[in-house]
Nucleic acid binder design. Sequence first.
DNA 1: CATCAGGGCCCTG
DNA 2: CAGGGCCCTGAT
Length: 322
Amino acid sequence: MILNHTHTIDLFPIAPYTFDVSFHKPDHFPTSDNHWEPGVRWQTMRWQGIPLGLKFENVGNLYQPCIRLSIWSQTPLDPDFIKGLRQELEYRLFLNLDLTVFNQRFGDDPQLGPIIARWRGMRPLNVSSLYEYLIIAILLQNATVRRTVSMMQIMYKHYGTLLEYDGRQFYCSWEANDLNTVTEDELRALKVGYRAKFILRISHAFSAGFDEITLRGQPRSEQRKALLGLYGVGPASAGYILSDVFHHLDEMDHISPWEQKIYSKLFFDVDPEQPVPVEQLTELFNQRFGGYRALAVHYIWEDLFWKRKNENIPWLEKLIRL
DNA sequence: CATCAGGGCCCTG
DNA sequence: CAGGGCCCTGAT
């Protein structure tokens, strides 16, 4: 599908805001719906059923942030659509997050302070809808990164839409309805394994009305309950979604074994293969980062993975198993 | 070649 | 509440 019509609008995040570390997360596995270069991110999006090609460009700075957003579409978009899209992106990109309190509170923390200074203005990144994020969460389960990438790619090939805009090609996600007529065997043929059942059950739930926007307005406990009610979603996936999709900056209910190893090294400087008990990690997070546990760990985590981009971190390589 | 664990979850006992 | 099984893949 070739997208020829363009609209351009400006988005104004709350300062401080930093474009690159907010739009590129070195620890996220690569998917063919987006591409980042310094100052630019291409990203497809399906909104109100319409496939869009987005291009975000940094035209501001830390204290006077501005993002120029170009929107490619197959047919012209009316102003109401653009308005709704703007609101949705402001939410998903967390542009209204005011980091002032966080920065003040942890600016003097011996570990977090220098990291905040380095990445000031960074916020978590999620451009996906809840449904799209759930698919990713399912594909992450019990798989290496390489396998997750290949499962995601084959799903895009079969059910996504290839978009061409700005001289580039990216896949755009499908909708839950699109899988209504797909059988478990068809999905299994794509080598997603037992996850086929999860993907279908979740897609059916969304087709039947499971609604992201409604959930946004509910308290975290209700959101968690609703997520855990989805077949194939357990505490790990629910935790990622509550922090990444629903923006709960203090979400830290579940620490999985591989995370436990990395946290043990980062916060206690012990051999990751002899990790400290989860309860001890939880206690440390509560004491030091209470109220902002997810955001604090996000800063430390991203700092580590940016470092990994530039230098070899042997202990980490062993743990992330590409 | 065979075996096994992997960035979970469901189901059973 | 602990533990087996699940699809597949690549590492050993």
